[in-house]
Structure formats: structure tokens, C-alpha cells
Amino acid sequence: MSEGATVFDLQRFSIHDGPGIRTVVFFKGCPLQCLWCQNSEGLDPEPEISFSKERCLGCRECQPSCPLQAIVFNGDGRINRQLCDRCGRGTEACHSGALELVGRRYSPQELLEEAMDDLPFFVASGGGITLSGGEPTCQAEFLSEFLPLCKEQGLNVAMETCGYVAYQKLEPLLPFLDLVLYDVKAVDPALHRRLTGKDNAVILKNLVRLLEKQRCRIRVRVPLVPGMTSTDRNLRDIIGFLKKHRVDEVSLVPYHRMGESKLEKIDSPLKPLNLAGADDRDMEAAAGLFRVSGIEVLDP
């Protein structure tokens, strides 16, 4: 038995993460640290405390609840992260929702139950659930119990992955997945290291092996981050790689700034990029590059 997985959100009515109406399950923990990360609360594998300063009433009722004196009222932040052991007692004492526990432990059964809340909508739309994060493959042991339960229920399951995982862990999941949404961020290893903190050799190798095995279930996705991944050079590299491996469809995912407001709340190691989001023109320009190379651009 796995010890369960830490999930920080279940997002219902997602219609751009696989076919139909889907519930996206966001797992905590990720091996990469992409500069533009949209879900920075997904990086750390453990639950953490977020603080929204605009919601704080300053009532200080949270302070006595913390045995470690990790709640502080000097300056903008509220948590002394060195002292905090993330027990969550402070969040319970907070009525305004300024302090919140991000991430909750789920057993496979519990997660299934909650993920199935929208079953009638999945059935009507041909949708299902999409595993995301963070990086779902970090929870390989949990998934080996969770995915068979999903299949017993006939759920359509998609998984979004960065691909940075040992192939032996990835392969056993495949029979349970209807669709793998596989991110390709950069082909040049140096660029990839600069953008994500990790090398991409294993990512590209895994992708090639998956394509050989289960081509129809793999969908490559490219995040378009202005000046980072969506440079002409990088896109041409990606197109070259995909052509070489006879990938003829791709989804493009526009960068947006929504994620940055979360950084401060959890004192994330990531810094705001202050980039403008990718607009329709950026998207069209990038899509054009793929199309002229004979790669179809699908809805994300």
C-alpha cells in the first residue's frame, strides 16, 4: 500500500486538458523547476502553508495556535518558514482564509471518490480525469493503485507529464492511460537546463520510446513562453525533433501570468518573470511554423 498522495487541487470543468469535460487532479511534487511554472505550489512534494496578505484581518487569533511560534506579524509575510513544520493548526484558526493549507493527503479510494463527482458530465462529453501537477509520475507507486480503480469505473484517464522520470516507472502506467499529454519545452540541452534546472536527455529518450510503443496515445504539448520557449530557434529545434520522430500533431499551450500571484503566498524560490502572456498573435505565429512543417496544431 502506498501512503497516499498529496494533491493540491481538483479542478472541475476543465475542457482544454484532453477530450470532453474533465476534472484535473493536481499532485504535489515536481523534479523540474521551470522558470515560468504556473503551479508553483506543485513543486514541493509536501503540504505547505500559503498566506494571502490581502485577506488577513490582523486579528492575530492564529498566533496562539502555533506551538512553534512560526507565525509572525512583522513585515508582509506571516510564516517563518525555517520554524514552520506545516502542521496546519494556524490555518484552522484563521477565519478569513488568509492562511491556507495547500495540499491534502488522499488515499487512492478517497481521490477516486472526489474525482468522480462530475461523472455525469464525463459521460455526456466523453471526458474524464486528467492527472497533472506538479508531476504525476512522482507518485508512480500511488498511481499503480489508483489507476486500476479508475479503470474499474470505466473512467477516461489522461496524464500530463514533463517526462523527467525513469522509464521503468512510466511504462507500467501506460495500459491505464487513455492519453498522455507530453511536454516538450526545449531540445537544446543547455537551454533546457537553463529553463528548467534539469537536463532533457531522459525526457526526449522517454518520448521516443513511448512513441514507438503507443504512438496513438501520446500527444506532444509545447508551452509557449515568450522569449524562453517560443523563440524561433527553439521552435525550429522542436519541429526538427518531432519531424524526425514522425510526430505530426502537437498542442500549443500559451503562457499566462495567472500563476505569478501565487509565488509570494508560499515564499516560492521562483521569481516573477513579469512577462506579458502569450496573445493570439504569438499563438498564430508559432502555430504557423508548425503547420508549414506539416505538423497539425490541435486544440490543447
Partner: peptide, 22 residues
């Protein structure tokens, strides 16, 4: 913007059908 295109139309329709089914 969220309901753009055929995907948006289709899923809006499914949303309505499932809701009426409930």
C-alpha cells in the same frame, strides 16, 4: 474565450445535457 471554437460549443452542449439528465 473559454468556450471558443467547436470544442467550447461541444462541451457547453454536454454540460447542458448532463445537467438536464441530473
Amino acid at each position: 474565450t473559454y468556450l471558443r471554437g467547436a470544442v467550447g460549443t461541444g462541451n457547453l452542449g454536454s454540460l447542458i445535457r448532463a445537467y438536464f439528465g441530473l
